[in-house]
Write a protein that binds this DNA or RNA. Structure first.
Lengths: 239, 239
DNA sequence: CCGCCCATACATGTATACATGATGCCCATA
DNA sequence: TATGGGCATCATGTATACATGTATGGGCGG
């Protein structure tokens, strides 16, 4: 991926609007701002030490991302996502990431990408070989999982796949960054999917890779749905 | 669908920012603003008779929609979509609308929705029964086609499907609004797909409906790709 | 006592002034 | 002549003042 900071030899500026957007998105995703909270421009501007302008810009952006609801002259509100909407996002993700696998298999897997995938597999194997999960393993495993999925998406060469999957990630609870740690066998099986998907990709079995990925993502959504209420109440159980 | 103009008994205001956004989007989609054109705030503001503020707001929104490229301190540019990117959008649309069919079939088709679909079929049959296409038929056929697809998307009950398909439509040339009229047999076959899809939906054949819709949309993309250069040069051939 | 209406307070929408970084020209120098 | 640095210009980023629609609360009528 091209470094988005550099282009034409210039170091692209980072504007306050972008910073504020990222900050507010973070606050929404990590729960600092709860669903239903009103987002008032002046208090936010004061809190962030900027004027209303970048705040308004950020709210517009977040509204376009779908994270906040907007009504003219009535302001912005942190959007409420219920379980069915979150699950619906996984359904779509399953279809799109399945497509990504099919395309990736058709494109063929270059040696360096194969190495990257195998490295993800090895890392997951290492973590899971202990027969249980420890807190220290959460973050590395998350990163591995993100890398694995992103690698395939990138390999698909379809920018829309990337764009839409990114959008589904920008929703509380819908993310590879969310993993439920309390059920070791589920994670074990999930990582076994990674093995089979990699195998299918490398051997050019596009349809098989697609089916595997669809189920892989779909089940993650199903599992999340079943545990949704629990997670809402105890966000620390997910990471 | 709920009337977005009304909520809580209020008639929602329309802001200049929204008007400007819609105007500029229109100018981009209909070619008034060509790919690669720089979008400068002050000239646009002058041209539209507003200040820079709503223009900036609109440009931010269009940037989030992906219609314009943005680089901090360097401004906005109408995005260039090449043939491969346009085709990539159809690939994704095919996967998502296929999913919509599967979900719709699983949900079951209420009588009124079935009536709507059958009415679309009948209208298409009527237009095509003449054995050729006349200019006067373009717009009704387009509207029928849009209605048909939207009905299924709505029936899927998955808001993300709706959202993502809408996003792919907001790209020059990727739209049910674009139909290539010069090849009657292709349209005839396309409408035959509509018949089979409806049949599959009503009889609850989710997998069949999905496969049919995937191919239906995929082929539209393929056909567009093959004729892309022609259309670029003669936009009037598409409608 | 309840409900409606209007006035006032306030948040958001818009315009504009000011700050800052990008672009391009000019000229000095190799 | 080609190249590179510095300065002027201008578009964009931000702050703030002003305009306008919304919502709350108190008073009036039923």
């Amino acid at each position: 991926m091209v470094d988005p900071q550099r282009l034409h030899g210039h170091i692209l500026m980072r504007t306050r609007s972008q910073d504020v957007t990222d900050t507010l998105r973070g606050w929404i995703l990590n729960g600092t701002l709860a669903a239903g909270d009103r987002l008032e421009e002046i208090p936010l501007a004061t809190r962030l030490g900027v004027s209303r302008t970048p705040v308004r810009s950020a709210l517009t952006a977040l509204s376009n991302e779908g994270l906040v609801d907007y009504q003219p002259k009535r302001g912005y509100m942190v959007r409420q996502f219920d379980a069915s909407e979150v699950f619906a996002a996984y359904e779509v993700r399953a279809a799109i990431e399945g497509l990504a696998c099919r395309l990736a298999a058709a494109n063929g897997v270059p040696a360096d990408v194969e190495g990257k995938l195998r490295s993800c597999l090895a890392q997951g194997d290492r973590v899971l070989s202990k027969g249980r999960l420890e807190a220290a393993d959460y973050e590395p495993y998350q990163l591995m999982n993100i890398t694995f999925h992103n690698t395939i998406i990138e390999l698909s060469g379809n920018s829309w796949v990337d764009r839409f999957v990114s959008q589904t990630h920008a929703v509380p609870f819908v993310s590879d960054r969310i993993i439920l740690w309390h059920d070791y066998p589920v994670i074990l099986r999930s990582h076994d999917d990674h093995h089979r998907i990699t195998n299918a990709l490398i051997t050019g079995q596009g349809a098989r890779a697609e089916d595997l990925m669809r189920e892989h993502v779909y089940f993650a959504g199903l599992f999340l749905k079943e545990n949704f209420h629990m997670i809402r109440q105890n966000p620390q159980w997910a990471a």
